[in-house]
């Protein structure tokens, strides 16, 4: 009961309860709880096949869950599709960044929702305005300046700049409530990784809660407030980053402390 009381006090942007998902005979997620508070970065970790991607796909509307409920700002929602989730303010930046390499940064930020002006009954793109707005967005919200690469095709940009363009596309709409980042540091060198982690902290400082999926615990500890650990489709622990250690999280990931956390199921 105390637990329920506590939950009410906390400012949850997103809550998922009892999420279960089967693929054929395989149970990918088993009764998983997940929560995200306003203004926090939540790390989501787990071994390959632990169910991270499945959970994220359910939370971003890619798959429906077989059981369980999702609350967005305390209201129960059914995410019908990726587009529907987007319209509710759940944005995602994928590992492959999903940028069009041959277009410039601003064209990528506005891809699919270009600014245009009517002329003679037709719509003409306002490239200058999109450029100004995109560069302002990157500068003000992400502290990123493209410098001489303002007009260059995205393949000329560094990894960190590309990352910022991908994030820019996700956050430029005012109604964004949650940003999901799938392995944001996976393809980056040390320099660019530092920049990306900084980007994530900047986002949080602007009040955008972020879910970060990462393999690298170092990176997760560097940016997150809390960490959720999945193992074999189950949620095996949520820890406050400041009060936990890499050893503890690693233990949860590989199951060394399994007996303490959940009753052993012995299921493969």
């Amino acid at each position: 009961m105390n637990d329920a009381k506590k939950r009410q006090d906390e400012d949850f942007v997103l809550e998922a309860r009892g999420i279960t998902k089967n693929f054929g005979g395989l149970r990918a997620l088993d009764n998983v709880d997940f929560s995200l508070r306003r203004g926090e970065v939540m790390g989501l970790v787990g071994d390959n096949g632990a169910g991270k991607s499945t959970l994220i796909k359910i939370l971003t509307g890619v798959y429906p869950a077989d059981a369980g409920e999702i609350l967005l700002e305390r209201q129960p929602v059914t995410l019908r599709s990726r587009q529907h989730a987007k319209s509710l303010g759940i944005e995602a930046v994928y590992q492959d960044l999903a940028l069009v390499d041959t277009l410039e940064a601003s064209a990528n930020v506005f891809l699919g929702s270009e600014i245009s002006n009517p002329l003679l009954g037709m719509q003409f793109l306002d490239n200058a305005k999109m450029r100004t707005e995109a560069l302002n967005l990157l500068k003000n919200k992400l502290n990123i300046q493209l410098g001489s690469n303002r007009k260059a095709p995205v393949f000329n940009l560094s990894g960190g700049q590309k990352q910022s363009v991908a994030i820019g596309r996700a956050i430029y709409r005012e109604h964004i409530k949650i940003l999901v980042m799938d392995e944001p540091t996976a393809a980056l060198g040390p320099e660019e990784t530092e920049k990306t982690l900084h980007l994530i902290r900047t986002l949080r400082d602007h009040g955008i809660p972020v879910i970060v999926i990462a393999h690298n615990l170092e990176h997760v500890f560097a940016v997150s407030e809390r960490i959720t650990v999945l193992r074999r489709g189950r949620m095996v622990g949520v820890r406050s980053t400041a009060e936990s250690s890499k050893t503890e999280i690693l233990g949860l990931i590989i199951g060394a402390e399994e007996k303490e956390v959940v009753p052993s199921s012995g299921k493969a």
Binding site: Y94, D96, V100, L111, R169
Partner: peptide, 14 residues
């Protein structure tokens, strides 16, 4: 350009 450059990105952007 988007469809030819990165079909997945184009689909993702609706």
């Amino acid at each position: 350009i988007a469809v030819g450059g990165n079909r997945t990105a184009a689909i993702y952007c609706g």
